[in-house]
């Protein structure tokens, strides 16, 4: 394969990853890392480093649209970012000491669990609890849903749980080069009582900041190779732009199903990689 062919193929894969990633609120890293390692033969550390850069691109590109459309809950995002950024710091630091095999196995389990939790019908959402922290921080919000044609308002509960999960999502972001949306979104939706569109938008809003913390570490360590990171970043950026335009008009259920399919495929990929 010539360097030009490599660049063109990686650009195409990344475009697809960015499109799907922005639709479901993951950074695209979940697709980019297996594609780069399994299909293109990139070493795992370089793939993770390129991916974390692309995660910033997806998140920031899509977040710009969500923020101006008012779907992202910026206060909630700011609060939970305390958890994700602290986690990303720890994760990027840990990355040097943990073996890739264990990371693949652990996250295969995490992804499979997440897919299962998202498949549960909406009626099974945990009853909202009174949350003094959410009241005090003014986290309750609303947004205009284009596909429903009306304002959707919601109350936030279990902010403490959300912060804890955000920390774990941050660690996984720093370790694996993924956005961490797969871990945050189910908890924000099922336990915190936030509608799926607001979850996706707010998660994307947070992921850029989370990924910036770990990307800086990878960049300074010399793990980010321009030859790999450039087509990944450009492809993901362009795909994410299209995704952000489509999201506002799509129904929540469709996004959910695509999300579950992505999770299941990623879980299998990571399991095989960990066992192999």
């Amino acid at each position: 394969m010539t360097p030009f062919a490599f660049t063109a193929i990686v650009l195409g894969i990344s475009y697809a990853a960015g499109l799907l990633g922005s639709l479901v609120g993951v950074g695209g890293g979940i697709i980019v890392v297996p594609a780069l390692t399994l299909l293109m033969g990139v070493s795992i550390k370089k793939a993770i480093a390129a991916s974390i850069i692309s995660v910033i691109a997806t998140s920031s590109g899509a977040a710009a649209s969500y923020v101006s459309e008012g779907i992202a809950n910026m206060r909630l995002g700011m609060v939970l970012e305390v958890g994700t950024v602290a986690g990303a710091l720890c994760g990027a630091y840990l990355a040097e000491f943990v073996s890739g095999r264990w990371l693949f196995l652990t996250f295969s389990v995490v992804l499979a669990y997440t897919a299962w939790s998202m498949l549960r019908p909406r009626g099974h959402r945990i009853d909202p609890a009174r949350d003094a922290m959410a009241d005090r921080l003014g986290l309750h919000s609303s947004y205009f849903d284009r596909s429903l044609g009306r304002e959707v308002s919601y109350r936030v509960s279990r902010t403490g749980l959300g912060l804890a999960v955000s920390y774990v999502a941050g660690v996984s972001s720093g370790l694996l080069g993924i956005g961490g949306g797969v871990l945050k979104i189910p908890v924000m939706n099922v336990a915190m009582g936030i509608p799926i569109k607001a979850c996706t938008a707010t998660s994307n809003f947070m992921i850029g900041v989370t990924a910036a913390a770990s990307a800086a570490v990878y960049l300074m360590r010399g793990e980010v190779l321009p030859f790999v990171a450039a087509p990944v970043a450009v492809g993901v950026l362009l795909g994410a732009r299209l995704g952000a335009r489509l999201l506002g008009g799509m129904r929540g259920q469709a996004i959910r199903l695509i999300f579950v399919a992505v999770l299941a495929a990623s879980a299998l990929q990571m399991l095989l990689k960990g066992l192999g």
């Binding site: 394969m1 010539t2 360097p3 030009f4 490599f6 660049t7 293109m40 033969g41 990139v42 070493s43 795992i44 550390k45 370089k46 960049l219 300074m220 360590r221 010399g222 793990e223 980010v224 190779l225 321009p226 030859f227 790999v228």
Partner: peptide
């Protein structure tokens, strides 16, 4: 690419994406 900075052969790509490469920083 215009300046031919990546070279043009397969072994070049293997070197560019391998685990050993650390980017000058």
């Amino acid at each position: 690419f215009v300046r031919g900075g990546y070279g043009g052969r397969g072994p070049e790509v293997a070197r560019l994406i391998g685990p050993g490469g650390s980017f000058p920083r």
